[in-house]
């Protein structure tokens, strides 16, 4: 009996070892091949020359006189530094993403707070209500605002009917429309992490503070807000990082004044077919986002992988 169990366990161990390797290996290789290595290729092509060929860039390795030489072209990066358009597009993206995140936080935090305070039986329904819009098509949600914000759109018609304005407000194709679109599209990503954080908050801490004579406002700023810091950080990263590289919102709701790097990269790639410059733009964007992304990854890791 003992022996059989022993044999079985060693057999299982071998099987388990093989299984373990497969379970680690398959997703690991997939992500390595289709997520990690592509970044190295972008880095490589950002140092290439633009060529009129298929594919439209030069090879970094050259075979001449039986020796391999590596030709690095820093020109793409110098080109980016030279043209003020790119600098202002990076700054524009950061500005729009920053204020978009701030607006999301200002609207999202009270929403999450009210959800966490709502009666228990309502909470899951409220969560679905906030989450549901983010499941519907992003493109469609942005498109919906085009019809509302146009010069002869619903908002202007409504305001003129009220008599508040007698000339239509120009909102579509301005930065105001971009902010509305950003807050609309990313609000659920701000609300849910904060809600998840606030709902776990130990209520006795607030009661203790109130017993000791703290006013509600003081209670909020000295206890609730600091304790929900990790939710605020997670939500802000989930909004800020994708917003910096946003393409669809500036293209559909923004106007000529909206300079954002995602839009410029898209145009550089699809309209000018300049792949090396587009790669250099992507590399610089990645460099800017590296700090927030690492920050976000570290905060997620605790949640993803248990305690180990």
């Amino acid at each position: 009996m003992m022996l059989r169990k022993l044999q079985a366990s060693s057999c299982h161990e071998l099987q388990a070892d093989l299984g373990r390797r497969a379970v680690i290996g398959i997703p690991f290789l997939w992500l390595l091949l289709f997520f990690f290595i592509p970044f190295i290729i972008v880095l490589k092509i950002s140092f290439a020359y633009t060529e009129i060929a298929i594919p439209p860039y030069s090879d970094l390795l050259e075979y001449a006189d039986e020796a391999v030489t590596i030709v690095l072209n820093f020109g793409n990066y110098l080109f980016l530094a030279d043209d003020p358009l790119y600098l202002s597009a990076y700054l524009g993206s950061l500005e729009v993403a920053f204020f978009g995140t701030l607006w999301c936080l200002l609207l999202g935090y009270p929403m999450a707070y009210a959800m966490a305070r709502a009666p228990r039986k309502w909470q899951s329904a409220l969560m679905i209500a906030v989450l549901l819009p983010s499941w519907t098509s992003f493109l469609i949600r942005i498109y919906a605002w085009m019809g509302i914000l146009r010069n002869n759109g619903l908002l202007n018609n409504f305001l003129m009917w009220l008599g508040v304005i007698d000339q239509p407000l120009i909102i579509l194709n301005t930065n105001v429309a971009v902010y509305i679109g950003l807050v609309y599209a990313y609000l659920p990503f701000m609300v849910l992490p904060i809600y998840a954080n606030l709902v776990k908050l130990d209520h006795s801490l607030i009661e203790a503070a109130q017993d000791l004579g703290a006013r509600p406002v003081e209670c909020f700023f000295r206890i609730t807000l600091p304790l929900s810091k990790s939710g605020i950080i997670a939500g802000s990263m989930l909004v800020f990082i994708p917003a910096v590289g946003e393409v669809v919102i500036p293209q559909l709701l923004g106007g000529p004044e909206t300079l954002m790097i995602g839009k410029i990269l898209w145009q550089e790639f699809f309209n000018n077919r300049d792949w090396p410059v587009a790669s250099a733009l992507a590399m610089v964007m990645l460099l800017i986002l590296l700090v927030p992304i690492v920050f976000f990854n570290n905060s997620r890791q605790k949640e993803l992988g248990g305690d180990s």
Binding site: L31, I241, V244, I293, Q301
Partner: peptide, 24 residues
Amino acid sequence: LFSSMITAPLVMPDVIIGLSLLLM
């Protein structure tokens, strides 16, 4: 490395993922 590769696509801007995969 693995857990970073799992969480990074959640926030990585689409333009970067799209461009890097195409070049790959």
